[in-house]
């Protein structure tokens, strides 16, 4: 029960942070990526603040033998920089650059601008299902063992 309540709280904190940082607005994201135009460095402060906080907190949490409400830490174990990783990152970069939405802010902004964002989120889910379909059928590199983050 504790882990479920804490998952909800963590989600709330995440959505609140994205809103405070205005990362729910794709224009803020696109402007960070637009060095040649209307550059807005805000995203670097979001990523920097989040990563440094997580790095310190992860180190402290990692001193425990197990999480508070689960029997073990479930961390990614893959080590190789392989074709699926690179190909997936390239595809994600293209989609992210096209409209400025990535999965977290897309879900959070559903509450603010439901119309256009819902189209993106439905397509996002379809893309994930397509990957799963190909992966379970073992088609090409998508058949590589899916490591979940």
């Amino acid at each position: 029960m504790g882990n479920k309540i804490m998952s909800l709280v963590a989600g709330l904190l995440f959505g609140f942070g994205l809103t405070l940082a205005q990362m729910v607005n794709p224009q803020k994201v696109l402007n960070f990526l637009d060095f040649a135009g209307t550059w807005d460095p805000s995203l670097a402060f979001v990523l920097g603040g989040a990563t440094i906080t997580a790095a310190i907190g992860f180190r402290l949490a990692g001193r425990r033998a197990a999480p508070l409400f689960a029997d073990r830490f479930q961390l990614p174990t893959a080590k190789d920089i392989d074709t699926p990783l690179v190909g997936g990152a390239v595809l994600f970069g293209i989609g992210w650059g096209l409209v400025g939405l990535c999965p977290g802010p897309a879900i959070a902004s559903l509450a603010i601008a439901p119309g256009s964002v819902a189209v993106f989120v439905l397509a996002l889910i379809a893309g994930m299902l397509l990957h799963r379909l190909l992966a379970t059928r073992g088609v090409g590199s998508a058949g590589a063992k899916a490591t979940s983050r």
């Binding site: 504790g2 882990n3 804490m6 998952s7 709280v9 963590a10 989600g11 904190l13 995440f14 609140f16 942070g17 994205l18 809103t19 405070l20 940082a21 205005q22 990362m23 805000s42 995203l43 670097a44 402060f45 979001v46 990523l47 920097g48 603040g49 989040a50 990563t51 440094i52 906080t53 997580a54 907190g57 992860f58 402290l60 949490a61 425990r64 197990a66 999480p67 508070l68 409400f69 689960a70 073990r72 830490f73 479930q74 961390l75 990614p76 983050r149």
Partner: peptide, 23 residues
């Protein structure tokens, strides 16, 4: 606000890892 929001996102990640052991 970007830094403050970022810190909240980081705290969310720490909270999830600390309580559920998930990324």
């Amino acid at each position: 606000s970007a830094l403050a929001g970022g810190i909240m996102i980081g705290l969310s990640a720490v909270l999830l890892l600390l309580t559920s052991g998930r990324i």
